[in-house]
């Protein structure tokens, strides 16, 4: 077993583990022996800046919000691609302009789709 080339690695791993766990264990032991523990209901309650916490932290968001994420993506991607396009605009050929136009129109189509679906009106 000692001849195994990974043996030294295993030793190192155990040492590293001990290095991490020993201080934790000592701290825990120290706290367990010496810390003046006075728990009560108020102290153990969830910290909310002094207010009582209400409800559950595990709330669910409506999946319908994915639409907003998509619209955000449309504008986000558009901005990222339009900026270099605008910078290099004067030096571009016809083909580049047309392909850019197609790209922008595709995104506009997405926007139009969202509009038709009525997402842009805030209910």
């Amino acid at each position: 077993m000692v001849s195994n080339p990974y043996f030294s690695l295993a030793i190192l791993f155990v040492a590293a583990l001990g290095f991490g766990l020993a201080p934790l264990g000592l701290a825990w032991l120290w706290a367990w022996i010496y810390s003046p523990s006075k728990p009560n209901a108020v102290k153990n309650s969830i910290y909310e800046c002094g207010l009582e916490s209400k409800g559950d932290a595990w709330v669910q968001f409506r999946s319908a919000y994915y639409l907003y994420a998509i619209i955000f993506l449309i504008f986000d991607v558009e901005a990222v691609f339009l900026l270099p396009f605008a910078v290099a605009f004067t030096g571009l050929g016809m083909a580049a302009c047309v392909s850019m136009l197609v790209f922008v129109l595709m995104l506009v189509e997405g926007l139009a789709w969202a509009w038709v679906k009525g997402i842009l009106t805030w209910a």
Binding site: P36, N40, V42, S45, C49, G50, E52
Partner: peptide
């Protein structure tokens, strides 16, 4: 005041 007292309660001893 209730918030202050609650925060005081939530502090560790001493």
């Amino acid at each position: 005041a209730p918030q202050v007292v609650r925060l005081y309660n939530q502090m560790a001893e001493p």
